[in-house]
Nucleic acid binder design. Structure first.
Length: 511
RNA sequence: GGCCGAUUCGUCUAGCGGUUAGGACAUCGCCCUUUCACGGCGGUAACACGGGUUCGAUUCCCGUAUCGGUCACCA
């Protein structure tokens, strides 16, 4: 008997993966790695109506981007293939048939209209719950109420039918959730769920139990929205005779709106101006483009770190984690029970932490590309220097170029407040002296030597350096604020520095 | 509405009977810096309410309130 831990991420390919889904996948992955187990990917595409082309590929791309590795499953293969539920229909039909044969499920022929009528009738009668259950099923059209000959006749005639679970009338169903502890539900609250749809495909409830069992899943880690149907799943394991190897459940708290009520939605993302999908997604039907964390400039490491801490924490004060560190400290018992509001500011802070630690050479291509896109001429070497200068100031790599406009452009105007306050006779004298010193200077033009040249020139002119630095900055960049001036000059080069000083002297008002 | 779950600073959270209720984001102030930012230091700020249990409840139990989820031939 194997004790290997096996978990699965089982998304439905109905569109781009929601960021909450990424977190669910992440927790599964962390748990699997932590326990030395396996992470499976299964595609739950049993709803033909909701199938969206490209969604499956998107899911796999998104997981790869996040650094979540799949050990077995769709796209990877493994001993339990196929991992796409639409390709496993015979398996579900076989198990559903077994439930029928054992009297634990039955055929139902009710039409949508009949079901509607039943619910309306029950609601009108103020029934506690309008559901297809132990009581109401005897008034419906199914193999429990119809004569065997009629059931057979209908099936032979090709009448559409579903298979429903014969839920017991009164029975306590208990399950021990790893995160929440014991949860007890009375079977009367569970209705006769459809197990096999009239198109021959299973519903989630049947497919997930059958596959989890067949694939040897030991822990089901999924969103809290499944908690209400978890007792039904326990019942199914029992009826299928698999209760002794039933996986353990862990229901994760949901991601909530940044403000207001309800769970996080696409709409909140649009309103708040932040992504809700890991990768950009273009709807194949409408052509609408939804932004992604990746395209917005979030690093996968930052996104993962942010997501990991949204609902879980290690109990220590550590905030920054590599994937390996997350794996080492992850513990399902430390997952918080309540839903977490989605705070994009925190995500930005995490990104800042990671961007400033990126090697300059890694940032350089992005900077160069952004610079070129903005119409600037920028070598890779220059991009690397700019990255070094500015990466600590930004939340996103793409913002580096925004911060670098004073490097690419000579001033087109000069900040008025700074001009008024700092552009005086001493400033002109100092800028002139520095200009002249630079023209005569023949050595290497780097921050260190520039600093000395500047300092010497200004001192010789009889001026205190501190008094004119703002003016110097104004002359060179047009602004009173910005990154280190010496490094800025090094990057723009001697010729351009000299030229800008001349421009300032010629343009700024004579004090 | 029925059922299930949750409830600590504005937000993410630590806490698992006795703490000056800790950290992080955000915010404010100070320092650093020739400037801005980064960074460092510090401040403001929380146990939903009511009953129990207990020598003692943020912590355990029960109500109430509020929030969330779920009640499909969707997952």
């Amino acid at each position: 008997m194997s004790t290997e831990i096996r978990v699965r991420f089982a998304p439905s390919p109905t569109g781009p993966l929601h960021i909450g889904g990424v977190r669910t996948a992440l927790y599964n992955y962390l748990f699997a790695r932590k326990m030395g187990g396996k992470m499976l990917l299964r595609i739950e595409d049993t709803d033909q109506n909701r199938f969206v082309p490209g969604a499956e590929a998107y899911i796999m791309d998104a997981l790869r981007w996040a650094g979540i590795e799949i050990d077995e499953g769709q796209g990877t293969g493994g001993p339990h293939a196929p991992y796409r539920q639409s390709e496993r229909r015979e398996i579900y039909q076989r198990e559903a048939q077994r439930l029928i044969d054992e009297g634990k499920a039955y055929y139902a022929f009710d039409t949508a209209e009949e079901l509607d009528a039943m619910r309306q009738r029950l609601e009108a009668a103020n029934a506690p719950a309008a559901q297809y259950n132990a009581i109401t099923r005897m008034q419906m059209r199914n193999s429990l109420t119809l004569k065997p000959e009629e059931v057979k006749a209908r099936m032979d005639a090709g009448d559409p039918y579903v298979i429903r679970l014969k839920t017991p009338r009164k029975e306590e169903v208990r399950l021990n959730d790893i995160i929440r502890g014991w949860v007890t539900v009375h079977s009367s609250a569970i209705d006769d769920k459809v197990l096999l749809k009239s198109d021959g495909l299973p519903t989630y409830h049947l497919a997930n139990i059958v596959d989890d069992h067949l694939m040897g899943i030991t822990h089901v880690i999924r969103g809290e929205e499944w908690l209400p149907s978890a007792p039904l799943h326990v019942l199914l394991y029992r009826y299928l005779g698999w209760e002794d190897t039933m996986p353990q459940f862990a229901h994760l708290p949901l991601l909530l709106k940044p403000e207001g009520n309800g769970k996080l939605s696409k709409r909140d993302a649009d309103l708040g101006g932040f992504p809700i999908f890991p990768l950009q997604w273009t709807d194949p039907n409408t052509g609408q483009v939804a932004r992604g964390f990746r395209e917005d400039g979030y690093l996968p490491e930052a996104t993962v770190n942010f997501l990991a801490l949204l609902g879980w924490n290690p109990g220590t004060e550590q905030e920054l984690f590599t994937m390996d560190e997350l794996i080492a400290s992850f513990d399902l018992a430390q997952v918080h029970k309540a839903g977490a509001r989605f705070d994009i500011q925190k995500a930005q802070w995490f990104n800042h932490q990671y961007v400033k630690e990126q090697p300059d050479a890694v940032l350089a291509p992005t900077v160069q590309q952004q610079a070129q896109a903005a119409g600037y001429d920028c070598s890779l070497a220059k991009a690397e220097k700019i990255a070094a200068l500015l990466k600590g100031r930004v939340n996103f790599a793409r913002e580096i170029v925004d911060e670098a406009t004073t490097i690419f452009n000579a001033p087109t105007h000069y900040d008025e407040a700074v001009t008024t306050a700092k552009w005086n006779a001493d400033a002109v004298k100092a800028v002139t002296a520095f200009h002249d010193a630079l023209v005569a200077y023949e050595g290497e033009f780097v921050a260190d030597t520039i600093k000395h040249t500047l300092s010497d020139a200004v001192t010789q002119a009889g001026i205190k350096q501190g008094k004119i630095m703002q003016a110097m900055r104004l002359a060179l960049t047009g602004s009173g604020a910005g990154p280190d001036l010496m490094l800025t000059m090094e990057i723009i080069g001697k010729d351009e520095t000299v030229r800008r000083l001349e421009q300032a002297l010629a343009t700024l008002p004579k004090p």
